[in-house]
Design a protein around this nucleic acid. Structure first.
Lengths: 147, 147
DNA sequence: GCCGAGGTTGACGTTAACGTAAAGTGCTTG
DNA sequence: CAAGCACTTTACGTTAACGTCAACCTCGGC
């Protein structure tokens, strides 16, 4: 009865009028799709980031799982730990019936992540300048060697 | 043995009117300055990222070292490994007398890093959208609870 | 019936990036 | 001169995020 409408985390999903096919994926498919190993995917499940269904022993992943994996990997590329990612993900899941304190906590976390992003943006900007500089010098030296 | 002429490593040494003084730093100063531990700084040296001078046993860091530490930490925040950072740093140092092959290799690495940055920029953009979305929903639920 | 391709659960191994504790050195301050 | 810092080396410990076996199941095809 507590069937949550199960809307996956998504700001970028085009909710077309198409009858959404209930596509599913095997662990191997997902692995190839995102260029990770199956070990990684199982590990993420063990860490509470995924919860695929089972047909017998075999894991079957649906669209929601796929999106979650995608977001997890994106978070990782941005330097978040699995623990951090899990925190947000779990709070998101618990949101519908979350109490005020939890929700405020979630917003607090999000604000923090956002600050993190801002800093990274600045870091990237500065790093790009450094790279430009180093590359320019390298090219100068190359030229000096008589290209 | 080596009698050093009692220079008290004063931070505010009035040697001249020039603003560009040959300032030096102790390991503790740098640690506080960047909010890392001295262990971290020594570790970076061990990994070939820093090479401070010594007065007896004690490490003395100059402006160049400080900048390098700053860049290292920035690289870390962007998810580069110490090995990667070292690669760039060492090649940069060896640049003046670097041969063509090395220089091309350096430029290749830089191009790679740059691609990395581009991807991170995109990741950040997407992640910000996600965060916006999650936060908006959280606020909606909060409001629904009768704020 | 057997085989290979994929899937499963342990369980132990590995690597990066430090943390932490022990034991010593050197300066300066009461 | 004793105490107290800040610094040093050595060395073992720790954590996250997987990698790497081993030993097993299971299903479609020949």
């Amino acid at each position: 009865m507590t069937q949550t409408p199960s809307t996956p985390l998504s700001a970028t999903e085009k909710a077309g009028p198409l009858p959404r096919q209930r596509r599913t994926y095997s662990i191997g498919e997902l692995a190839r799709m995102f260029e990770v190993t199956t070990r990684t995917i199982r590990f993420y499940e063990q860490e509470g980031l995924l919860a695929p269904e089972r047909r017998g022993q075999t894991r079957i992943y649906d669209e929601k799982d796929r999106v979650r994996l995608k977001l997890t990997l994106r978070g990782k590329r941005l330097g978040f730990s699995l623990a951090e990612i899990r925190e947000v993900v779990m709070m998101y899941d618990a949101m519908p019936d979350g109490n005020r304190r939890q929700l405020r906590r979630l917003i607090e976390i999000l604000t923090d992540k956002r600050r993190n992003m801002e800093r990274q943006l600045e870091d990237i900007r500065l790093m790009q300048l450094e790279l430009d500089d180093v590359e320019r010098r390298a090219r100068d030296v190359l030229e000096g060697l008589g290209d």
